[in-house]
Structure formats: C-alpha cells, structure tokens
Write a protein that binds this DNA or RNA. Sequence first.
DNA 1: TCAATATTAGTAATGATAATTATTATTGAA
DNA 2: TTCAATAATAATTATCATTACTAATATTGA
Lengths: 139, 139
Amino acid sequence: MSNTDFRLTPQRKIILEELMETDTHLTAAEVYEIVRARLPRISLGTVYRNLETLSQLGMIQKLEVGGTQKRFDGKTNIHYHVRCLSCGRVDDAPIEPQTALEEAIEGLTDYEIIGHRLEFVGLCLKCGKKPGGEARTRA
Amino acid sequence: MSNTDFRLTPQRKIILEELMETDTHLTAAEVYEIVRARLPRISLGTVYRNLETLSQLGMIQKLEVGGTQKRFDGKTNIHYHVRCLSCGRVDDAPIEPQTALEEAIEGLTDYEIIGHRLEFVGLCLKCGKKPGGEARTRA
DNA sequence: TCAATATTAGTAATGATAATTATTATTGAA
DNA sequence: TTCAATAATAATTATCATTACTAATATTGA
C-alpha cells in the first residue's frame, strides 16, 4: 500500500491556485465563493475538508488570528499578520520573526515553549478613511 | 436619567469574584461551572451576557487567544499570554509589553496600527510530562 | 406605592465548522 | 481491460460556541 495516496483533484488544485493568487488571507467562506466561480458544483464541506487536509500536509497554513473565523494562507513560512478591526481583513506584517521573544521567556514559565504568534491590529486603508467604518466585526 | 444604571447584581458580583481569584484565564463555560457552585440557578446566557457587559465596561478583559473559545481575564492591564497546545490552558506570560514592535512596523503598512497581540504556545507543566498528552485541542 | 427600567432564567436562533452518508472517481493488480 | 479496493466528492445533518429573544422578576426613583 502506498501511503502517498493524496490525490490532487480538480477541487484541491483550484483551491490551492486561488489561495496562492491572493495577497490577503481568506476565510473558508471566501474561498468557497471564489472557487465556486470556477467549480459551481463544489460544496462548502469540500472546501473545509480540503483546507484542513492541505494545511495538515503543510501545503498551506491555517491561521489562528483574532475574529470568529479561521483564515488560510498560501504561504507556509513563519511570518506575522496585521488585522483590520473594522472589516476583518488580514495582511502580512512586514517584520521579521522575533526569535528573541522566545529566548526572553525561556525559563520564566512552567511551559515548554514551542512557538509564538504575533498579530498587529488596526485599521486598513479603506476602513481608516471613512469615519463610520469602525467596529464592524465583533472582537 | 442617570446613565450610571449599572447594577452590581449577585450574579455579576460572583462572576467578578471568581474571575479575580483564578490565576489562569477561564472560558465562559468554565466560569459558568464555577459560578454554579455558588448560584445553582444561574443560566449560561447570563454568564455570557455579563462577561460581555463587564468587559465592555473595562472591568474585565475578553481575550482573543487561539483555540475555539474566548477566554476572560480579571486583570485589565496590557500583558501577554502562554497557551498550552494540549489542554488549552492559558496563563500570563512574564514578559513586558514590547512597544518597540509597533514602532518597527509603523509606516511599513497601509494600516493605522492600534495595538498588537503576542501569544506564546507550548506545553504546560502537566501536559509536557505525560507523553500521550499532546494534540488534545484542535489548533 | 407604583410605574419605568434593568436584569434574569430559560429557550430558541445563529454562524462556523465538523461528521455522516451514499455516490462517483481513480488506482493498481490480475 | 477489467474490476475490486480505496479516495474523494456533494449533499446533508450534527455539533459547538455564542447571541438573541421573551416572559417573568427585581430594583429604582419620583
């Protein structure tokens, strides 16, 4: 039996392609909407299942940013994010991984430290302008 | 009309007391369980509503840590957290706020930066020991 | 004392995600 | 090639966390 029985189905291929082509980071629902333009019969469950599978295989990254929905990232290297408090948009943060942070707490807690997540919050270009554009998304 | 019509009901008082007394950071469901020992007839909805109200008033803090559930903190000052990847437990991280981080990205993004969140992940004392104790909670 | 308002318990509704299931597609060995 | 084994799908249902609704109770201040 081959344990390499991962099949790059049309659904998976297109999900991957669309994730690669976006510079922001999409929710499962957003991926579903976008992919549906090319595969109208795909189901939301398939999107969820494959986003999970692909991130399990390390081909994409499941992000744990604030807000109520998970977001997915075509880039798998370690990097940080900026999130808009108004519309929920998430972009990459142009700052290098701060390894010094983990060294700083090493030994100061009972925890075996494995990693860290840094997320900046603020207002994106679009939401920062208009004065009524705040507090749209919950937390 | 007084706009100071916040009433410190027994429910709210006890929720606050219990939050203050814990060193870790509880989910709404955990608060519910603990408070129920003293107020058996309280409802889960009341717990959620009051956790929201109290954090809105700045008396407690609603945390946006990873995992599927929000957590609540009796301390309202700015500080960081460590989260156990196995059991989900969240403790304070003994490290000062890194104001330099926000200065570092200032001007490098289109965002108006308002703040940042830093969360360390790892294994707590209990989960780090036992070899089967990993990957209990999702993400 | 009483009407206005706040809060509650209980329950139903929502939204995000995961599990189930029956069907379709793909593979690799005979 | 053909066919049984396996993988993946679409569609549906279930689950979990959270929020909204509602009718009843409690509190306040005139």
